[in-house]
């Protein structure tokens, strides 16, 4: 043989430094990252379908979250003007009623207390209710003395108001105490429950995203079975075979997260105008809140994380079962 044996050239040995190993590792990951993205782009319809389902799944809890956030913002403004009405027992003289008012007014947790006489009460009722004519038919004024109380700023939490109300109710002259803003607390409780619903929905739909990505990756693995077997034949580890699938899953999740962000932003933009109109009719400066940067990050990063988890679980499970049969 005149020509040198190239086998000898190929078998010349090579050495690797740790730095070279690291740069190779990074290079391989970058390559997987790009090639997995390329795979998604090459099958646009299937990828769009998967990303669309994930996007909708993530957008739903995000929208629910915004409903709660905005409703809380509305009631947060109202809670500051909390008021208690104390109705006194009958019969009661004007002198007695004034003493009770003074007693209440002196409390630390009360900002001010105003006495409403039965006559004032009746007048106010006539004006507010529109039953003026009907009320004139009454012989006696049936209304008791009442005291309207504004709690001190430091004592306007629902707990403080409740204890104030309980204490006032124990006074011998007091018939009944009404917290006029009771409905705010009820709404708060409803919003609190709704927040739990949001968490639950987010949990379930997040699980849904994991399942969707997992199923997509499973189909992908089945379609590339032969390739996987060959890679394992020439010494590819499970981790090596799994890597491109993890990147695919993460891309799906990231795409879904971005789509969800777009959907939520579009919904907020669509509703902002009409809601501001309603708010202006109520002389409120309320503005519809969209996702804050933290929320956007949570949505997009959460989507990517769920995609990664879905592909990891599926790929780990299925790739172990594919062994070369040579």
């Amino acid at each position: 043989m005149s020509r040198p044996n190239p086998a000898k050239v190929a078998y010349a040995s090579g050495r690797r430094s740790p730095l070279a190993a690291l740069s190779t590792w990074v290079e391989r990951h970058v390559q997987s990252l790009v090639s997995s993205l390329g795979k998604l782009v090459r099958q646009p319809f299937a990828s769009a379908l998967t990303i669309g389902v994930i996007g909708l799944g993530l957008a739903l809890p995000a929208c629910l979250h915004l409903v709660v956030v905005n409703a809380s913002a509305v009631t947060a403004g109202i809670e500051k003007t909390v008021q208690l009405s104390v109705y006194l027992k009958q019969p009661m003289t004007a002198e007695q009623a004034r003493k009770v008012r003074q007693g209440i007014d002196a409390r630390d947790d009360v900002l001010d207390a105003q006495l409403v006489t039965p006559a004032e009460g009746l007048k106010e009722f006539e004006e507010m209710s529109g039953f003026g004519e009907a009320l004139k038919a009454l012989d006696d004024n049936p209304l008791p003395y009442a005291i309207t109380i504004r709690p001190a700023p430091l004592f306007d939490s629902p707990e403080a108001i409740e204890s104030l109300s309980d204490e006032l109710e124990t006074l011998p002259e007091v018939e009944i105490v009404q917290v006029d803003t009771e409905w705010v607390r009820r709404l708060d409780a409803i919003l609190g429950a709704l927040e739990q619903v949001v968490l639950l929905a987010a949990g379930l739909l997040g699980l849904g995203v994991v399942v969707i990505v997992g199923n997509t990756i499973r189909l992908d693995i089945n379609g590339r079975r032969e390739e996987i077997e060959v890679i394992k034949l020439v010494g590819g580890s499970n981790a090596f075979v799994r890597r491109p699938f993890l990147y695919s899953g993460t891309w799906y999740g990231l795409g879904g997260g971005l789509l969800a962000w777009i959907l939520v932003s579009a919904a907020v933009g669509f509703l902002a105008g009409p809601i501001e109109k309603v708010a202006s009719l109520y002389a409120s400066s309320f503005r519809l809140q969209g996702l804050d940067p933290d929320g956007i990050l949570a949505l997009v990063a959460g989507g990517a994380l769920l995609g990664w988890v879905g592909s990891w679980v599926t790929a780990t499970y299925h790739l172990r079962r594919i062994e070369p049969r040579a």
Binding site: G14, R16, A21, T24, R28, I231, V234
Partner: peptide, 17 residues
């Protein structure tokens, strides 16, 4: 190149080999 990619060989050495 597949076995070398699996083994984590640098791009330059990959080309050569």
């Amino acid at each position: 190149a597949l076995p070398l990619v699996i083994a984590g060989v640098t791009r330059r050495e990959l080309d050569k080999r």
